[in-house]
Design a protein around this nucleic acid. Sequence first.
DNA 1: ATTACGTCCTGTCGGC
DNA 2: TGCCGACAGGACGTAA
Length: 286
Amino acid sequence: MPELPEVETVRRGLTPVLEGARLTHVRINRPDLRFPFPERFVERLEGARVERIDRRAKYLLAPLSTGETWITHLGMTGRFTLDGRQLGEFEEPAPIAGKHEHFSACAERDGRTRIGFADARRFGFMGLIPTAEVETHPWFAGLGPEPLGDGFSGAHLAEAFAGKKQTIKVSLLDQRIVAGLGNIYVCEALFRARISPLVAAGAVSRPRLERLATQVRAVLDDAIAAGGSTLRDFANAEGGQGYFQHRFDVYGREGQPCRGEGCTGVVRRIVQGGRSTFYCPSCQRR
DNA sequence: ATTACGTCCTGTCGGC
DNA sequence: TGCCGACAGGACGTAA
């Protein structure tokens, strides 16, 4: 379930365990996820100390004491688990938790915590690149601003959207324009801003773009707050039940009444760029 | 250059 | 119950 708020929630769950910890018992159970694991991946992680857990867009970054940064993208179904169980005298990490766990390690600081990474669809991936080269790496060089950072505003959207004929829905999913939004939060932000997903990005007025930027931040803040309250569940094996899902206004609500104040419309589902868009045709008119 | 589409992979859910 | 198609929160590669 990883869009920006979910990745941020995972980051906050991993931080207390991984920050300052040394990685041991690193293991991979297959040669690749979406991409091959890096060369000598296990050896390069083994014994390294994790300095921090950072997030950029939907990527998790763990700068290491070795001068390299361990990078994880959760794809669609990637999940970290922390079982918190002390492995005691076991030489090897605990048995594989399910057939889709492709990576595991232990974080050793005061005690030892086992970390697993499972990804059924294997759209996720991991990388290991010199920390000094992260910003210029192809995964990061072209990313737009963080939506919760200073670089994101109505003015930024106006500049990025100028002359664009692509619909605003599809444009907001473009990570080069703003980095971290996914299908759900784009739908929700457009609803909150009362902007139709069908309009051309370049045709949206400046006041509406200001409103959109405000609502993008608002929905992400709300979702992070909701995810943050379920940190523990996320970190445990059953993770993934974000609790913001109960507050969706449009996503997954096809055929249900619009929640807009005074609106009698019904939420519709259409397909744009091959992906579902949910919106209220009554209050998102242009 | 921008835009559109197919692709990677597995699991789940609804309909027949 | 079983089978089949549609769909799933991402991002890349290719082609128009």
